[in-house]
Amino acid sequence: MDHRSLSGEKKKNVFRRFADALVKYWPYYLMMLFPAVIIIIYKIVPLYGLQIAFKEYYPRIGIEDSEWVGFAHFKKFFTGSDFLRVFANTLYLNFLKILFGFPAPILLALAFNAVSGKIFQRTTQIISYIPQFLSWVIVYGFMYMLFNYNYGALNLLLEGMGLEKVPFLASEKWIVPMLIFSYVWKNIGWGSIVYFAALGNINTDYYEAAEIDGASKWSKLIYITLPLLLPIMTLMFLIQIGTLLYGDFEQNLIFMGMNSLLRKRGEILETYMYNLGIGNQQYSFATAVGIFQSVFGATLVIISNFLTKRLNGYSIW
């Protein structure tokens, strides 16, 4: 018996096992058929389309017959003038979102935790989650009322104080603060939930013991509360680091609107891809940008998950 027939035998066994399983458990496999077809067509088949990043794709010619161009689109992206700007914008925005968006929910949770009165606490908490449930379009509508140039609340206030009005929503200088503010506004309440839950799990004995020792409010916060929050803080921090290359696509898209001035600071990888791909029909180039983002983005996610596992013994998956 030579090697080939042995492996053939093995293969047969696999098929055999599969056939047996199919006979024995067919209802379970039948159940999965419908969702599996959907996943295959709309999640896995698109992966086949990724090859257009290495081709010069024209819809009229089709994916198969389009010409292979190797890494030409990637080269064009990396050496092009847009790369640094878009890449830097993506990282910079996410850096600021972590800088402001990471501590904000923690502070809110601490405030909720310290507040007296169950009803007041519950009501304010529930209100704080509302923005999370609204789309970015609607959030933009709200920000519009606060910040628009002619009649916005903030500009009326500035005018009332005798200061000059500021075109918050339409100036290159202000787009980043607007994005950060609306991001924090939308996420602060929802983000506080995990921290609030963690605070509730802290054993009150610790505080009582500290009080007996005469600890002040601040030292209790610094020596008891924060160290006990550290695991969940690291976890949330690492999750955010993992998404460093992914922007809030819908947010940037709506805040930039049709104002091309704002693209200079507000353009991120996703919007860039969208504008080139769908807007300018540079399908191959936009797909190449997408691959770049996926590969580096997924690497970051995997690294951050690995670190989380090491530090907390807790994995995202």
Binding site: I41, K43, V45, P46, G49, L50, I278, T287
Partner: peptide, 12 residues
């Protein structure tokens, strides 16, 4: 985690 992204999905 990994999908084709906007354009390949749109093509499908």
């Amino acid at each position: 985690l990994f999908n084709g992204g906007v354009i390949p999905t749109w093509l499908v």
